[in-house]
Amino acid sequence: MADITMYELPGCPYCAKVRSKLDDLELEYDVIEVPRSHGDRTEVERVSGQTGVPVIIDEAHDVDGMHESDDIVAYLEETYA
């Protein structure tokens, strides 16, 4: 199991942006696909307080439920680049 977990929805362009950065940085990460319906996204809501994706958890740096793709990409650059 990787330190980074990403919650995503297939086909989501914001999720693809984060996934691309993770791949560019050659980071290992686990993916959890969320349901299409926001009402069914109980797990991502539990970890981030909201139902939008992408969301990441980075156990190595005590990051729980970071959302907003631009914020995630900036964090990954700052932490791992």
Score class of each variant (00 low, 15 high):
Ala2Asn: 07
Ala2Val: 05
Ala2Leu: 04
Asp3Pro: 07
Asp3Trp: 10
Ile4Asn: 04
Thr5Cys: 03
Met6Glu: 12
Tyr7Glu: 04
Tyr7Ser: 00
Tyr7Gly: 02
Leu9Asn: 05
Pro10Glu: 11
Gly11Arg: 10
Tyr14Ser: 11
Tyr14Ile: 05
Tyr14Phe: 15
Cys15Tyr: 14
Ala16His: 09
Ala16Asn: 06
Val18Leu: 12
Val18Pro: 05
Arg19Leu: 13
Arg19Gly: 06
Ser20Leu: 13
Ser20Met: 15
Ser20Ile: 02
Lys21Cys: 05
Leu22Met: 08
Leu22Asn: 02
Leu22Val: 00
Leu22Cys: 06
Asp23Leu: 10
Asp23Lys: 13
Asp23Gln: 13
Asp23Tyr: 05
Asp23Pro: 04
Asp24Val: 04
Leu25Cys: 03
Glu26Pro: 04
Glu26Gln: 15
Glu26Cys: 08
Glu26Ile: 04
Leu27Val: 06
Leu27Tyr: 07
Glu28Leu: 04
Glu28Gln: 14
Glu28Lys: 08
Glu28Thr: 08
Glu28Tyr: 06
Tyr29Pro: 03
Tyr29Ile: 09
Tyr29Asp: 00
Asp30Gln: 12
Val31Trp: 02
Ile32Trp: 02
Ile32Cys: 07
Glu33Cys: 07
Glu33Gly: 05
Glu33Gln: 15
Val34Gly: 02
Val34Gln: 05
Pro35Val: 01
Arg36Thr: 07
Arg36Asp: 01
His38Pro: 03
His38Ser: 09
His38Tyr: 09
His38Gln: 14
His38Glu: 11
Gly39Pro: 02
Asp40Gln: 14
Arg41Phe: 11
Thr42Val: 00
Thr42Trp: 01
Thr42Met: 00
Thr42Gly: 01
Glu43Asn: 11
Glu43Gln: 14
Glu43Ala: 12
Arg46Ser: 12
Arg46Pro: 00
Arg46Asp: 07
Ser48Tyr: 02
Ser48Phe: 00
Gly49Pro: 01
Thr51Cys: 01
Val53Thr: 04
Pro54Asn: 13
Pro54Asp: 09
Val55Cys: 15
Val55Met: 01
Ile57Asn: 03
Ile57Cys: 02
Asp58Thr: 06
Asp58Arg: 00
Asp58Asn: 15
Glu59Thr: 13
Glu59Asn: 12
Glu59Met: 09
Ala60His: 09
Ala60Leu: 10
Ala60Tyr: 08
His61Trp: 00
His61Phe: 06
Asp62Lys: 14
Val63Asn: 10
Asp64Pro: 01
Asp64Gln: 15
Asp64Leu: 09
Met66Val: 14
Met66Arg: 15
His67Met: 09
Glu68Lys: 14
Glu68Asn: 13
Glu68Trp: 12
Glu68His: 13
Glu68Phe: 12
Ser69Gly: 00
Asp70Pro: 05
Asp70Leu: 03
Asp71Lys: 15
Asp71Gly: 12
Ile72Ser: 02
Ile72Ala: 01
Ile72Val: 04
Ile72Met: 09
Val73Ser: 03
Ala74Met: 11
Tyr75Thr: 10
Tyr75Leu: 07
Leu76Tyr: 04
Leu76Ile: 10
Leu76Val: 12
Glu78Gln: 10
Glu78Thr: 14
Glu78Val: 08
Glu78Tyr: 08
Glu78Leu: 11
Glu78Ala: 15
Thr79Gln: 14
Thr79Gly: 06
Tyr80Ile: 05
Tyr80Phe: 10
Tyr80Ala: 01
Ala81Gly: 11
